[in-house]
Design a binder for these strands. Structure first.
Lengths: 356, 356
DNA sequence: TTGAAAGCGCTAACAA
DNA sequence: TTGTTAGCGCTTTCAA
């Protein structure tokens, strides 16, 4: 199994090497390798053969410096730890895969300083676009975004003012819709379970919309329970156990995400509680996970993939200039489009835990 | 909410702008911004102030071209769709965060052509290292890896010959260990449930190790069921239902991952099957998910975070030259180290579904 | 401690 | 269709 380190070539190959090997000028080699300009079939073949034989890999650093073009799109998200961002990224990739653009991903861990630092790092590579989760940023981050030449799309939230473009759902509205749905089903003693993280602005806005709608119906959150760290089934169970032992008369539990909601659901069922008769439950995100649970957890789809796709589409147009910058952006399907904001409509999935 | 596009600065700032604003030569500005060389405190302050006031972001493309140094580490994994790769990436980030190196992530979707293309793209940025999932690559990919100047660490598999370094568990051994464990518990009628994907070499090797160990005990896989596409609870349920209706006398189900295993577990419990008495179950990966299920699914931890951490550590050393290239790599904890291969020991987590 | 000159590997713009 | 020239914005090297 052991393997000695190989002797490596000292220097990577340059255009000049291909030029010499093929007997074609550097410039023409460059043209062939980029499929640009008219090159005779014969020359092209000679060059391709030489490049292949040598194993030449073009140096994009030099290319980018010379052409002042970089096909990188910076994507900045909090983390990969729950399933939500992977799906956004996957939507972004799907669209960018059809273009010469390439996503480069960075993580903030919900920390503004880290966001700032990651953005700075990305901008120093002069990307063709920036896609960033959220609308809340530090002063410095905002200034960098505004000063950047690249188009900026802020995603997964539309409750605020974007730098350039925004795509996502309104979390206030999502919270409000869930409140209205559970009120309509007759639930009245409402518990909330969510993260303690003060920097998760989207979770905060959902809760705001939720409590506001409850308030308008003369209701309020009767008890709540917060957790720290990542979401997991086990945490959902524990929190639910604590909340219900403290407030056994609650008849609805609103979770800030599906993972802890699923844990709560499993707990309630094990306790023999009648779901959704005695107690209703709802999460958030529309994770695939809930499909396989003993009951389908009520949830609200955040249109993650769609958000990613649309953000990538905007960047593509702006960067590749397929549409004049101020022509606005197209808007179809379940979306509203005001100025440079695409608002997607969160979809309520009542499942089996909300309809009694 | 609408927002007109801002007027953007035409040209991004250069060192020269900072130089002019501060009245210090470009060279000295460059020194200040890189904390390199001796610069008087006064000059440094002047430069920093000018750079901050202008909002200067250094151009790493030019810097990289001039210095022939790039602090990017290419990380190539199949996807983000299950929780396994996010955790590896997270381990990599943890370690690289302590260094000037930055991960850049690419996805192959288990397709060799895509792997080839992503690698080519990455190498064209001349990264300081490459971390790549798996040991099986196309001829062209292997040649590129061998020709690359950057150190290469192949992760999550050690059953094969790496280009430079390998870190991970032996999936053959993991499969074998699980087989031995269930045989020891007295299970005899074994079913297997896994992905149809022929290019998931690690899943294939696990199954090989598993069947081989069964064979040595005079047993074999009595029936099996394959699925396509992503893993989900729902798929685990369906497959289990199909398998058990076809072969109701199976007394153990080995799943190729925890997600479908969890779905299978929920299904079995709903059918009123005695788990683990009448039927045992096991998955693979050691996902956090299983902690919150009605029973803890037996599984085998693939040391994902640890794999990422060690791979990143190797790259750091090689790239930053903290250790001479042929001094080998340190090896501690639950790891064996032969030559340039670090073998981590998969940990059996018997949970509640294997011990009867 | 600071500055001047040369050039990293490629491409834009032009000329042949 | 092909080649030549002059940079892209920075860092290296060497001189002051």
């Amino acid at each position: 199994m052991a393997q000695p380190p190989r002797n490596r070539r000292r220097r990577t190959l340059t255009l000049r090497d291909v030029s010499e090997a093929s007997g074609v000028s550097e410039m023409t080699v460059s043209r062939v390798l980029r499929n640009s300009g008219d090159v005779s079939e014969k020359t092209r073949a000679r060059v391709m053969e030489a490049a292949r034989a040598l194993g030449y890999v073009p140096n994009k650093i030099a290319g980018a410096l010379a052409s002042q073009r970089v096909n990188l799109v910076g994507v900045i998200v909090p983390s990969l730890s729950n399933m939500v961002f992977p799906e956004v990224i996957s939507g972004i990739s799907e669209v960018l895969d059809e273009t010469p653009l390439q996503p480069v991903i960075g993580f903030t861990e919900y920390r503004p300083e880290k966001e700032e630092q990651v953005l700075f790092e990305m901008l120093s590579w002069r990307p063709s676009g920036i896609i960033m989760a959220g609308l809340e940023h530090s002063e410095a981050t905002r200034r960098m975004l505004e000063a950047a030449e690249a188009p900026v799309v802020e995603i997964m939230d539309v409750d605020g003012v974007p730098v350039d473009f925004a795509v996502g759902i309104s979390h206030r509205r999502a919270g409000r819709m869930m409140a209205e749905a559970l009120i309509a089903e007759g639930y009245r003693r409402i518990g909330f379970l969510g993260t303690k993280m003060p920097l998760d602005h989207r979770a905060r806005k959902r809760l705001e919309g939720f409590t506001q709608a409850l308030g308008e119906a003369g209701l309020e959150v009767a008890d709540q329970e917060f957790y720290e760290g990542g979401s997991s089934l086990a945490k959902g169970r524990e929190m639910t156990a604590r909340l219900l032992s403290r407030s056994p008369d609650l008849d609805f539990l609103y979770y800030s995400n599906d993972m802890i909601g699923a844990g709560g659901l499993l707990y309630c069922l094990e306790q023999g509680l009648d779901v959704p008769g005695r107690i209703g439950l709802a999460g958030f995100n529309g994770l695939e996970l809930i499909e396989g649970l003993p009951r389908r957890l009520a949830t609200m789809d955040a249109c993650r993939r769609e958000t990613g796709r649309r953000a990538a589409a905007i960047i593509t147009r702006q960067a590749l200039g397929e549409v004049a910058p101020d022509m606005g952006i197209e808007c179809e399907g379940a979306a509203t489009c005001e100025g440079h904001v695409i608002t997607l409509e969160p979809r309520l999935q009542p499942g089996d835990t909300l309809q009694r």
